[in-house]
Design a protein around this nucleic acid. Structure first.
Length: 317
DNA sequence: TGGGTCAAGAGGATAA
DNA sequence: TTATCCTCTTGACCCA
């Protein structure tokens, strides 16, 4: 409180006894004030000086109430002669509150509004403009933080869903392999029994096959092909999944892309070999495209998807 | 004393 | 051309 300039006004010390009382406008009145040239309800310029006087020069904890704006106010031509080198001073709490309310109404500053605010707050119009610029910058920074948090939450959710789907895929692949083997075995048995009947008259002396389970080479190839197909169906995009989090995030966001195998790779014969009765449950799987599943899950009759496997329900955001 | 915050400066982009 | 905006930076101030 050493060399503080004191400006004459003595009628407003009460204004800053309480921060909230410094600006007594209601919100409605505040908006009206912003658009009008009516008498200001804020006497920022002189009130700060008088507040300090009212505080008995107690600068401890009251540094916000220094009379910075007097030093910077262009109206005080007399003071320009004695002005010390410019030092940055914070706006008072009341000024900031007033500006904040104005910012909430409109974060852009029209020239008339700027002049009116400057007049009401006892600041230079440029100070008001600068405050709005900085305020917009802070607002943008906070928005970016919010956006980042939202995106991160979305990403975490998608990643979790994707990992669940990977587990589900492995389970389904195992089921397909198991059931395909069983089905082929059944077919081999039936084919051997059918083909052996007509051969009996012509080959009465043929020795019966002691190991009927042995699969013909062509069938084995088919099984391998099927296995390969199944692997291709799920793994064709695996570089996208497995390399880093970004790719998985992007890929998982589009379920149609993740599970969109080329059905033509699976022959109709193999497809027919899968029991239709084992497939119908697949079509009840939520939100996954139907064409994907008939070839991939052959054991849905007794396979229950865990609750977390419905994770695609969350993909809507 | 270092870091955080904020007012203000600087410079480029843009619209009227 | 001018005012305004945006972005980055600077310097003052405060606090743990």
């Amino acid at each position: 409180m050493a060399s503080r300039k004191v400006y004459g006004g003595s009628n407003v010390p009460v204004l800053l006894h309480s921060h909230n009382d410094g600006i007594s406008c209601s919100n409605g009145a505040f908006e009206a004030l912003l658009m009008s040239n009516s008498t200001s309800c804020f006497n920022g310029k002189r009130s700060m000086v008088n507040f300090e006087d009212a505080c008995g020069g107690n600068s401890q904890g009251m540094s916000f109430y220094r009379s910075h704006d007097q030093e910077e106010h262009g109206d005080d031509d007399l003071d320009d002669c004695f002005r010390q080198p410019e030092k940055k001073r914070r706006l008072s709490v009341d000024q900031v509150q007033f500006l904040e309310r104005s910012f909430e109404v409109e974060n852009k500053l029209e020239p008339e509004r700027k002049v009116q605010l400057a007049k009401d707050l006892g600041l230079q119009p440029r100070q008001v403009a600068i405050w709005f610029q900085n305020r917009r910058a802070r607002w943008k920074t906070k928005q970016l933080e919010k956006d980042y948090d939202a995106l991160k939450a979305s990403y975490d959710s998608l990643k979790s869903n994707y990992e669940n789907l990977l587990k589900e895929k492995d389970q389904l692949k195992a089921e397909v392999s198991s059931l395909t083997g069983k089905q082929l075995h059944k077919e081999n048995v039936s084919e051997n029994s059918e083909t052996s009947k007509p051969m009996e008259p012509s080959q009465p002396l043929a020795q019966p096959d002691p190991v009927p389970e042995k699969k013909p080479p062509t069938i084995i190839c088919k099984q391998e092909d099927l296995s390969s197909v199944n692997s291709d169906v799920f793994d064709s995009d695996s570089p996208h999944y497995t390399d880093g989090v970004h790719s998985s995030f992007l890929e998982a966001g589009d379920s149609s892309h993740v599970f969109e195998p080329d059905q033509s790779d699976l022959s109709q014969d193999e497809d027919d070999n899968l029991s239709k009765s084992l497939r119908h449950v697949v079509y009840n799987f939520p939100k996954l495209e139907d064409p994907v599943y008939p070839d991939q899950s052959a054991d849905c009759g007794n396979y229950e998807f865990p609750v977390e496997d419905h994770a695609l329900w969350f993909w809507s955001y």
